[in-house]
Amino acid sequence: MKNVPLSWVRPVAILAALTLAASCGLPKVGPNKRQIFAGSVQKQGDAFVVSVNDRVTRATAVVPALGFSNGFINAGRLTSDTIRPGDVLGLTIWENVDDGLLANEASNATALEEVQVDSAGYIFVPYAGRLRASGNTPEQLREEITKKLEDQTPDPQVQVRRVAGDGSTVSLTGAVGGQGVYAIERPTRTLSTMLARAGGVAIEPEIAQITVIRGGEQGKIWFQDLFNHPELDIALRGGDRILVEADSRSFTALGATSAQARVPFESQDLSALEAIAQVGGLISTTSDPTGVFIFRNEPAEIANQVLGRDDLVGAQRMVYVLNLTQPNGLFIARDFVVRDEDTLYVTEAPYAQWTKTISLLASPLTPLASVETLFGG
C-alpha cells in the first residue's frame, strides 16, 4: 500500500471540513436575515416584514395612556373640619328663656354629648329633626341647627364639636417608604402630599406607577406626571386605597446581543436604541447592525396604517427591520418606540459565520502539523 504524501493531507482535511460545515451547518444564535425575510407574507409566510422609516415610527409610536377620570380630577379638597360618617359629635344648645324646649328649669343650656353621624351621614337633634351632617364643617352644621330651632325658641345659641372620630383615612401599600393607614389632614389632602407623608416612593421614579382605587372606580398615573401635570394631583377622599408599584412592562432580547433575557422597561418611553443599550449593546465581532428586528403582534388599526391597507382584522404579526448603518439609521432607532412584550432580535454578521468556519477548519490542522514535524516535512 502506497503512503499518501503529507502535502496532500492538508487540502484533503480542508475539503473534508468544508464538506462537514456545508452538510451539518454551523452553530448560530437564531435565523439569519435571509431566513426571516423568507417568512414574510410576500413570500407566503405569516408575518409582515417592514423596513422602519420615519412614517413607520410615527404610526407605531403608541404608549400606554394613564390618567384619572373627571370624577377624580373634579373632586374638591376636603377640609380638616369636614364631618364624616362615623364621627361622634358633641352639641351644646343655649336657650334665651328660663323654660326652653330642651333646657330644664335649673339651666338654660342643654348638652348632647354623643351624637353619632350615621352611615348615611345624618344626625338627629330634638326639635330640629334629622339633619345632614356629613360633608359639612361644624360651623355649617351649627348654622343649620340654629336655623331649625330659632322658629321654636328665641335666639338659640348652638355649639358643635367633634368628640370622637379621626375623620377620613386612606391606605397606602406597595413600594412606599411606609405602608399603612393615614388620616387626611390639612397638609395631606392631595395625592402627592400623602405620598410624601408615607415616605415617598421606594423605587425608581421613572418606572413608578400610582393607582388610586375609590369605591368601584380606579385610576392610574405615572409618578412623575404628578409633578409635570398638576391637575393630576387629585384631592383624596376617605377610603381611598393607593397602590405604588413598578412598571410591569418588559421586552425580550435575543440573538447577537451582549445579553439574552427578559428585560424590564427603565423609562416610560423606551426606544429601540435604548433597548439595545439596556442589554449591553451590539457585539462588534458578531452582531449585524443591518439586521436588527422587532417582532410584535400589532393591533389591526396600526397594522393597516403601517401597511397602507384597510382590510386587516385582528392582531397581525409584524417584523420591523432596523438598519443602523443607514445615514439616519440611529435617528430612526432612537424614534422607534418599543412596546410591552416586544422581542428584540439581532442577527449575526456574515463575518461571524466565516470566523466559525475558520475555527472549524483550524481544529484538525494542529495534529496534522505535528505529523509533518515528526516526518521532517
Results as ranks from 00 to 15, higher is better:
137 T>S: 15
359 S>L: 06
289 P>C: 00
68 F>H: 04
308 G>E: 12
309 R>M: 03
58 R>K: 13
305 Q>M: 07
37 F>R: 15
70 N>P: 00
215 G>C: 12
54 D>M: 02
90 G>L: 05
261 A>M: 02
282 L>Q: 03
81 D>L: 10
281 G>T: 02
270 L>Q: 13
341 E>Y: 11
299 P>D: 12
194 M>V: 06
209 Q>F: 00
58 R>F: 04
216 G>W: 06
134 S>F: 09
167 G>W: 11
122 Y>P: 04
86 G>C: 12
46 D>S: 12
137 T>H: 02
21 A>S: 13
180 G>V: 08
165 G>C: 04
129 G>F: 02
43 K>R: 14
72 F>K: 02
377 G>N: 09
186 R>T: 13
68 F>Q: 03
322 L>V: 08
283 I>F: 00
83 I>P: 15
189 R>Q: 15
169 T>W: 08
365 L>Y: 08
99 D>H: 14
86 G>H: 13
374 L>V: 12
358 I>T: 13
3 N>F: 12
246 A>I: 02
307 L>Y: 03
203 I>R: 09
45 G>M: 10
315 A>P: 05
143 E>G: 09
298 E>F: 01
329 G>Y: 02
82 T>W: 05
375 F>A: 04
337 V>D: 01
232 L>M: 15
212 V>M: 02
368 L>T: 03
305 Q>C: 06
321 V>D: 08
198 A>L: 03
171 S>D: 01
361 L>I: 15
86 G>L: 14
316 Q>F: 05
244 V>K: 03
364 P>E: 14
110 T>H: 09
49 V>F: 12
305 Q>H: 07
231 E>D: 13
249 R>G: 08
308 G>M: 02
202 A>R: 09
371 V>E: 01
79 T>F: 04
278 Q>N: 11
158 V>E: 06
216 G>A: 14
196 A>R: 11
358 I>Y: 12
178 G>K: 12
232 L>E: 04
205 P>C: 00
